[in-house]
Write a protein that binds this DNA or RNA. Structure first.
Length: 604
RNA sequence: GCCCCCGUGGUGUAACGGAUAACGCGUCGGCCUCCGGAGCCGGAAAUUCAGGUUCGAUUCCUGACGGGGGUACCA
């Protein structure tokens, strides 16, 4: 997953050779290209160079002031680099050796690559032979799709695409919450108040109403909870009546979820659920027993994790019923047997972090006890991709609040989509009423705004769901990226001819163009950052930089204060070079948006 | 009580232990006889506090204060 920049590697090799030249008497300890590569950083301002080597750490050993070292090293490196006719040149500034790349050569190679490879730019085969599982969305049957499920759905969907791009065989898993005591509650509620309901329409909404009512009434009538436990027990034991109800709830819910996934462009490779594991838990519990890892505590059968500073993992409750941890264990082992994955990601909120620690640890103890070597253990290949809360900004009180599905305090994703789409449509009619298929485009923009709102911060951070922010189309938003893409497409239409295959990079030597080229070159790195951190945020933020850099070129003015147009009939060759740049940016922005799960309209 | 995460301008967020702390929104002031102004340019404005490690700390360590989460028979 690590990403090796060729220029940086070349620079590091030159530095390795330069040290003995500049300081022949110093036993430059541990100084090889590898370690120097690791020391490289980014200049504070990209105008200072592509990357840099801080030399402060050598001052003590060399008994020399950092600026002097930088200068000596820089001179020696430039000699070496020049002799190798490298594209890199160094510059000493303070205690740093800054690297500059020949802009024309970098533009030529980067743009040719993108033109040639198209949307395959950044594609890699490094994940070849590796199977990566991503579990995400995992919404609960009989509960509406609220914005609480937005983050896991969007992050997971994007990770699936990102790992595919890196050559992995990816299995996107939707692990539905279709089992558990909640269904006992629902069954009881349905029998009490739901028999007459017409569930052919808005089934989820109606079932959810029953669920909320159950919780309200159970507050005054604890006996309901008792009934719910009993109903779930019946369900788990395979009682036909309860089974039938459950199946009906499940089918109706799934139908509705599929509609919403289609609206959002979310895809899965395997839709399963907790119930799928019903017959797979007992053998797993037996395996734990055999390994000597189970004990009875307060009537429940548990895996003690006291030594790991974790609460015990409950395999069976005192009444014999299983829990979600039991199912997660069985699920993990089932998937391991089925795919022998190299990596499995659980995209689940951070509030469940202890739960996953327990499950992973329990599996680890099991594999240890069974004598499975470390590199063959499933427990070494799983990760909890956690993320912060989506808090709901209550405009009435101005404070962020948690949403609770039990209390019925929830924002429906479908309402959010509809609202975003309506606003986008208004905007299109007002700005570009000639847009083809306004309805479809408005939908793309609405979805783009919603999806990108989840990439506003790194996943670990809480984000507050704020209507104003999600429906904002300006600044660092999905629609800004989409707008940039549409504008690029517009330029290509305007150019009318084919994008030239040959161009003179000398025309792209301006500071603004150079910056765009650099960011294009860095796209694969952003891809690796996203994969390595399990966070598409890094792609989002990179696309924002790239778009901003291009928009700067686009609106640049000449000495007379007039816009320096991309397309100019008086400068055919310059126009060719610029159109190549436009095509490359459009390709990368479009592909980046795809990886985030955001549609890229050609006009809007 | 114990464990985990988080404290950066008015606000939402950035910043491999490195150079003058970056960007969006908001705010103030500019830019189209327009290749798409959903854009671009420029102001004002910030690292919770106290120690420590380091040549160098927003970043690492300790403590305080503040916020959030978790803490076995829900998921």
């Amino acid at each position: 997953m690590s990403f090796k920049d060729n220029y940086q590697a070349e620079f590091a090799r030159a530095a390795e050779k330069a040290f003995p030249v500049a300081y022949p008497d110093t036993p430059s300890s541990n100084l090889n290209a590898e370690s120097i590569f690791g020391m490289l950083g980014l200049p504070k301002d990209h105008k200072m160079g592509r990357f840099c080597l801080p030399v402060f750490r050598f001052a003590k050993e060399l008994k020399t002031k950092p600026p002097e070292i930088a200068q000596e090293l820089c001179d020696a490196m430039n000699d070496i680099l020049a002799a190798e006719s490298s594209d890199i040149r160094c510059e000493a500034v303070g205690g740093f050796v800054n690297a500059r790349i020949d802009p024309a050569n970098m533009a030529r190679s980067t743009l040719s690559d993108i033109l040639e490879q198209g949307e395959r730019f950044g594609l890699s085969d490094e994940g070849k032979g590796q199977t990566t599982l991503v579990e995400y969305s995992s919404c609960n049957i009989a509960k509406p799709f609220g914005i609480g499920h937005l983050r896991t759905t969007i992050i997971g969907n994007s990770l699936r695409l990102i790992f595919q791009k890196l050559g992995h065989t990816v299995v996107g898993i939707n692990y539905l919450g279709d089992w558990g005591t909640q269904f006992g509650k629902l069954i009881v509620a349905y029998r009490l108040w739901g028999e007459g309901l017409d569930l052919t329409e808005n089934a989820v909404e109606k079932l959810y109403g029953l669920y909320v009512r159950f919780h309200k009434e159970a507050e005054d009538n604890p006996e309901l909870d008792e009934q719910a436990r009993e109903a779930f027990k019946q369900l788990e034991e395979g009682n036909a009546e309860e089974q039938k109800l459950w199946e009906r709830f499940r089918t109706l819910s799934l139908k509705e979820f599929e509609r919403i996934y289609a609206l959002m462009g979310i895809e899965f490779d395997w839709i399963t659920g907790e119930a799928f594991l019903n017959d797979k838990m007992e053998p797993v519990i037996e395996r734990f027993r055999k390994a000597g890892l189970t004990s009875i505590s307060r009537g429940a059968e548990v895996v003690d994790l006291h030594d790991e500073q974790l609460p015990p993992l409950l395999l069976r409750k005192a009444d014999g019923a299983t829990l979600y941890a039991t199912r997660d264990l069985a699920g993990l082992l089932y998937r391991w047997d089925t795919w022998y994955f190299s990596l499995m990601l659980y995209v689940v909120a951070t509030s469940q972090s202890d739960h996953f620690k327990q499950v992973f640890k329990a599996v680890d103890l099991l594999e240890q006890a069974e004598g499975i070597p470390e590199e063959e253990r499933a427990s070494a290949r799983v990760a909890h991709v956690d993320f912060g809360w989506v808090k709901f900004m209550d405009t009435a009180t101005g404070s962020a609040q948690m949403m609770s599905t039990r209390k019925g305090n929830i924002v429906f994703l479908e309402d959010v989509i509809a609202k975003a789409k309506a606003l986008a449509r208004e905007r299109i009619l007002q700005r570009n009423p000639d847009t083809e298929d306004i309805d479809k485009t408005a939908h793309m923009i609405g979805v783009g705004a919603i999806v990108f709102s989840q990439f506003m911060a790194k996943r670990q951070k809480d984000i507050s769901f704020d209507w104003d922010q999600v429906l904002s189309f300006e600044g660092e938003t999905g629609p800004y990226l989409q707008y940039t893409h549409a504008r690029l497409c517009s330029l290509l239409r305007h150019y009318e001819a084919e994008v030239p295959s040959a161009f003179d990079p000398a025309y792209l030597g301006g500071e603004e163009e150079q910056r765009v080229v650099e960011l294009l070159y860095d796209f694969p790195r952003a891809l690796h950052d996203a994969a390595g951190n399990f966070d598409p945020y890094y792609i989002g933020t990179h696309l924002l930089k790239l778009s901003a850099a291009f928009n700067k070129v686009y609106q640049r003015k000449d000495e007379q204060g007039k816009i320096d147009k991309i397309i100019s009939e008086d400068h055919a060759e310059r126009t060719q070079a610029r159109i190549v740049l436009v095509k490359a940016v459009q390709t990368v922005v479009g592909e980046g948006l795809r990886l985030l799960g955001i549609p890229a309209p050609q006009q809007m």
